[in-house]
Amino acid sequence: TIDEIIKALEQAVKDNKPIQVGNYTVTSADEAEKLAKKLKKEY
């Protein structure tokens, strides 16, 4: 679900690790936030 994706992003940001979500690779908190907002609009 979208919530699980967002939790995974938040965890990756805390661990400061890049995370791959679908076609996106998120490497920073800023990118994670942008991706989360984008995904919320889509779903």
Rank of each mutant, 00 (worst) to 15 (best):
T1K: 07
T1E: 12
T1P: 10
T1H: 09
T1R: 08
T1A: 11
T1G: 11
I2C: 13
I2N: 02
I2K: 02
I2S: 02
I2M: 10
I2P: 05
I2E: 02
I2F: 12
I2W: 12
D3Q: 13
D3H: 12
D3K: 13
D3R: 08
D3P: 11
E4A: 09
E4T: 09
I5T: 01
I5Q: 02
I5K: 01
I5W: 11
I6D: 00
I6C: 06
I6Q: 01
I6F: 06
I6T: 01
I6H: 01
I6G: 00
K7F: 09
K7M: 11
K7D: 06
K7T: 06
K7V: 07
K7Q: 10
K7E: 09
K7A: 14
A8W: 13
A8D: 04
A8Y: 07
L9R: 00
L9M: 05
L9G: 02
L9F: 01
L9E: 00
E10M: 13
E10S: 05
E10V: 07
E10W: 13
E10K: 04
E10Q: 10
E10Y: 13
Q11W: 03
Q11S: 07
Q11H: 04
Q11F: 07
Q11D: 08
A12L: 09
A12C: 10
A12W: 14
A12E: 02
A12Y: 15
A12K: 02
A12H: 06
A12R: 01
A12N: 03
A12P: 00
V13I: 15
V13T: 06
V13Y: 08
V13N: 05
V13S: 07
V13P: 02
V13R: 05
V13E: 01
V13C: 09
K14M: 12
K14Y: 09
K14P: 02
K14E: 07
K14L: 13
K14T: 08
K14S: 05
D15V: 08
D15P: 02
D15E: 09
D15K: 03
D15F: 12
D15H: 06
D15L: 11
D15I: 06
D15R: 01
N16W: 14
N16M: 09
N16G: 15
N16L: 07
N16I: 03
N16S: 07
N16E: 06
N16R: 08
N16P: 04
K17D: 01
K17R: 12
K17W: 15
K17F: 15
K17T: 12
P18Y: 04
P18T: 07
P18M: 05
P18R: 02
P18I: 08
P18S: 09
P18H: 06
P18G: 12
P18F: 06
P18E: 05
I19T: 09
I19D: 02
I19Q: 03
I19L: 11
I19F: 08
I19N: 01
I19G: 02
Q20Y: 04
V21C: 12
V21E: 01
V21F: 08
V21L: 12
V21A: 02
V21W: 07
V21R: 00
G22I: 03
G22H: 07
G22K: 00
G22E: 06
N23T: 08
N23L: 08
N23Q: 14
N23Y: 08
N23R: 07
N23H: 12
Y24W: 09
Y24L: 09
Y24A: 05
Y24F: 12
Y24M: 10
Y24H: 09
Y24V: 11
T25Q: 10
T25P: 06
T25R: 07
T25I: 14
T25L: 14
T25F: 15
T25K: 08
T25N: 11
V26K: 00
V26H: 00
V26P: 03
V26T: 05
V26Y: 04
V26S: 02
T27F: 14
T27N: 14
T27S: 14
T27Q: 12
T27R: 06
T27Y: 13
T27K: 11
T27H: 12
T27E: 12
T27I: 10
S28K: 00
S28Y: 04
S28G: 14
S28P: 02
S28Q: 02
A29F: 05
A29H: 04
A29M: 07
A29L: 07
A29Q: 08
A29Y: 04
D30M: 11
D30T: 07
D30I: 13
D30S: 11
D30R: 09
D30H: 10
D30Y: 11
D30G: 09
E31C: 10
E31Q: 07
E31K: 00
E31F: 04
E31G: 02
A32Y: 03
A32T: 01
A32D: 00
A32K: 03
A32M: 06
A32I: 06
A32C: 03
A32V: 05
E33V: 08
E33P: 00
E33L: 14
E33W: 06
E33M: 11
E33S: 06
E33I: 14
K34V: 12
K34E: 14
K34I: 10
L35S: 00
L35A: 02
L35I: 06
A36Q: 05
A36G: 03
A36R: 08
K37I: 14
K37W: 03
K37Q: 15
K37N: 15
K37T: 14
K38C: 15
K38N: 05
K38I: 08
K38T: 08
K38Q: 13
L39K: 00
L39Y: 04
L39E: 01
L39R: 00
L39C: 09
L39T: 00
K40I: 13
K40S: 08
K40E: 08
K40W: 11
K40R: 13
K40Y: 10
K40T: 07
K40D: 04
K40F: 10
K40H: 10
K41W: 12
K41R: 07
K41F: 13
K41V: 08
K41G: 12
E42A: 07
E42M: 11
E42G: 07
E42F: 11
E42H: 10
E42K: 10
E42S: 05
Y43C: 13
Y43T: 08
Y43Q: 11
Y43V: 10
Y43A: 12
Y43S: 07
Y43L: 13
